[in-house]
Design a protein around this nucleic acid. Structure first.
Lengths: 210, 210
DNA sequence: TAGATTGTTAATCGATTAACAATC
DNA sequence: TAGATTGTTAATCGATTAACAATC
């Protein structure tokens, strides 16, 4: 199977389309055109069709796409046809927010272990998951077979945690510490820097003045 | 002044460079080359120079960049030479996490008002800021002259809140609700969808199998 | 059949990379 | 002067948009 490179922007849009299709499906709409999707999420119809064309032919010419079918296909493409086991490290406010974030569970991300080094937090139970000390990470994550690690710990310890997560066998890491992490190439790494988002806004607001 | 369009990717990288320069400056390093910065944040040296070249000449040929100088210039470009007043709407776990997130204050983002409709939260004080009901938003935000609004409320009310924020005069909105919002073109809007980030990871992990 | 909309190719646009003259 | 590194131009690469034949 020849795999041509898929732009990351395409993946991000597929994720957005899929959330929009959930909404449309709930309304009981059966068929949708690329133009409808485009209007709904703010891209061009050609873009929608191009994004889908990377993965196959899901529509009917002259008609459009069956909402349920297309939705199922996109979820499959994104790897969301079954649940993912997630380990979260760092139970500060952000970690707590992500643990209780409904959007994750809805999309099939199940937090199966939580780690923190604060003695007051260790042993407490959140959603049926007991908070464990970080030195148990490699053992517990390995046993739980978590495939994804989320780092919501301070920058100073983020690299150590990343190393432990890698050792425990996770395939992907989502890092919220504003820090450049090093992981082996076979482990997928993605950084979410909350301040960066505000700074793109302030740049744009500041530039408007000229 | 002719303004040529700056890629958003450049702005995001400038934000990353600036965080790296904070680190370098703390170590007491005085001069840095584009190659050092590139290594530090994982891009190419040519990219670093190109990004900076959009805004001026900040280095010395044969020598490199003065760390403090460059840092100051980048902060100025990003609009961070003075503080920004921020209104946060929706004090769930995510809202609480952002309110207490040190990374914001460090970069000059000061949360000056907080809104929620939960009677148990209204009237409580967080970091000197009293939580107010959402129907006071337009009045309070207008009075506080907040320039940025952060939406951490549920999707169902996100558009209403966005409308109120616009009415109150904010110039930019950072939206964490997984929802497409409509705002007038003069208001900058940026969406952070936490699930999208996980889904880019799962797509990549799922594709590795082929 | 006529109208609509897909899937796909070609054209355009934009961003990144490579190369090198300028210059400290 | 010799070595290093910037600033900038040209070449390359990749993503988006436009156009349209295929076809329901």
């Amino acid at each position: 199977m020849k795999t041509l490179k898929i732009p990351e922007a395409t993946i991000i849009r597929l994720s957005v389309y899929s959330r929009y299709l959930t909404e449309i499906d709930r309304k009981g709409i059966v068929t949708i055109s690329s133009g409808d999707i485009a209007d709904g999420v703010g891209v061009s119809p050609a873009q929608v069709r191009k994004d889908l064309a990377y993965f196959g032919e899901f529509g009917t010419r002259g008609v459009g796409y069956n909402v349920k079918d297309l939705h199922r296909h996109i979820l499959k493409i994104l790897g969301l046809s079954s649940d993912w086991s997630v380990a979260l490290v760092g139970l500060g406010n952000l970690g707590l927010a992500l643990t209780t974030y409904k959007g994750f569970r809805e999309r099939g991300f199940v937090i199966t272990s939580i780690f923190d080094n604060d003695p007051k937090k260790i042993g407490t139970v959140l959603d049926g998951v007991e908070v464990m000390p970080i030195d148990k990470l490699v053992e517990v994550v390995g046993k739980n077979k978590a495939q994804i690690g989320i780092i919501t710990a301070p920058s100073a310890v983020a690299q150590d945690i990343a190393d432990s997560l890698v050792k425990s066998g996770v395939k992907a890491i989502l890092n919220f510490a504003p820090m450049v992490l090093n992981v082996p190439p076979e482990v997928e790494l993605r950084n979410v820097d909350l301040a960066v988002n505000l700074e793109v806004l302030t740049f744009n607001v500041a530039s408007q003045r000229y």
